[in-house]
Design a protein around this nucleic acid. Structure first.
Length: 353
DNA sequence: ATCCGGTGCC
DNA sequence: GGCACCGGAT
């Protein structure tokens, strides 16, 4: 038996009874699908029932106020979904005579309806053979076919979409789409799927190769940190106070200046800034803001602000890595780019021929 | 504390 | 192409 037939058979046996199943009403399917975006069935179910009770048709929905919609949406998260639904309901009223579209090409134009939701509504309501590709489908396909292409890369998405579309058959589009998603949600779960009772285990590449827990592959999207570096330029004649950077952070063993890091711009984080500044240069020190620049790293965005130091007392005990060097000595020390840039603009007489 | 997940918008 | 949007599960 084919993969698709096995999945559909499994579905007929194990599917949950849910109120939006087995309806062909595109409005009701839209309602359920948008509510279920980024949301688990158990959490979305009561919301779906309340929305359908309040707004039995798309025209009822279109007549609602944004406040009413958001009040009903309360607690579900991603509130732009609710706002987009109202916008779309009005559009369906005005542009489609209140009749909710059932074809992918029309659905995809609606606000809040992306590729997944358009394929879901089109296949469920009119059996159009557009493959759905959600988190469940990615997982099932990557495991069964042993695909280790990252699902959140553009190439990976394309590959999975082509595969999913090749698998769907015209006559069974609606039920197959529902089946593979339900299969992913209940059987081929992200964590500890029970492969011993899986109907397609014998054909599953991940199972054969012991890769079930490794698939699907997902690129960690590096979350960029935003940081605020406030450098204190302490200069006396030809000497400047520098600091060697230590382990556990960027630019290890390179030289920069005494640094106060704040959680936000120093003006937004005044108290913290002044306190740290006082610890290094005494309570009564004066600073003057000089230049600023934005420094981009792979994993961090650093807003760098330079300050000139007017009067100060240096508390050397605060940090053993602080020391005086001449400007010429500093020029020979390894420095981060952002420091070199600063030196070149403010001490350009040091530039070599 | 970290993972999970569609769409809009930049 | 990458982030912001949210709450729940693990």
């Amino acid at each position: 038996m084919s993969f698709q037939s096995e999945i559909v058979n499994w579905y007929l046996k194990h599917k949950r009874a849910l109120p939006w199943r087995d309806t062909k009403d595109a409005y009701i399917i839209w309602l359920s699908e948008v509510i279920l975006q980024q949301t688990r069935v158990e959490q979305g179910l009561p919301y779906f029932n309340r929305f359908l009770q309040h707004y039995p048709t798309v025209l009822d929905f279109a007549a609602a106020s944004e406040t009413q919609i958001l009040k009903l949406w309360q607690g579900l998260g991603y509130y732009s979904r609710g706002r987009n639904m109202l916008f779309t309901a009005k559009q369906v009223q005005d542009l489609h005579n209140g009749k909710f579209p059932t074809k992918y090409d029309e659905l995809i134009k609606l606000k809040g309806v992306g590729e997944y939701t358009a394929a879901a509504i089109a296949s469920f309501s009119s059996n159009e053979s557009k493959a759905v590709l959600d988190g469940n489908v990615f997982r099932v396909l990557s495991r069964y076919f042993g695909i280790d292409e990252p699902i959140n890369s553009s190439g990976g998405k394309k590959q999975f979409l082509e595969l999913a579309q090749a698998l769907i058959t015209d006559q069974e589009a609606a039920i197959y789409n529902q089946a593979i998603m339900e299969f992913g949600a209940l059987q081929c779960k992200p964590k500890s799927p029970n492969c011993s009772v899986c109907p397609v285990q014998s054909g599953c590449e991940a199972s054969k190769n012991n890769l079930v827990s490794m698939l699907p592959v997902k690129l960690n999207k590096l979350k960029k940190r935003t940081r605020y570096f406030n450098y204190l330029i302490c200069q006396s004649d030809e000497n400047i106070l520098v600091k060697k950077r230590s382990a556990g952070d960027i630019w290890q063993e390179l030289y920069d200046f005494p640094l106060v890091e704040t959680l936000e711009n120093y003006q937004e984080d005044q108290q913290n800034f002044s306190e740290q500044l006082g610890n290094i240069f005494g309570k009564d020190c004066n600073v003057t803001a000089l230049s600023q620049q934005k420094h981009l790293l792979t994993h961090q965005t650093i807003y760098v602000q330079f300050f000139g130091l007017d009067n100060y007392i240096i508390n050397f005990n605060q940090d053993a890595e602080i020391k005086w060097v001449t400007l010429r000595e500093f020029d020979e020390l390894p420095q981060p780019k952002v420091i070199t840039n600063f030196m070149n603009t403010h001490f350009n007489y040091l530039e070599k021929p």
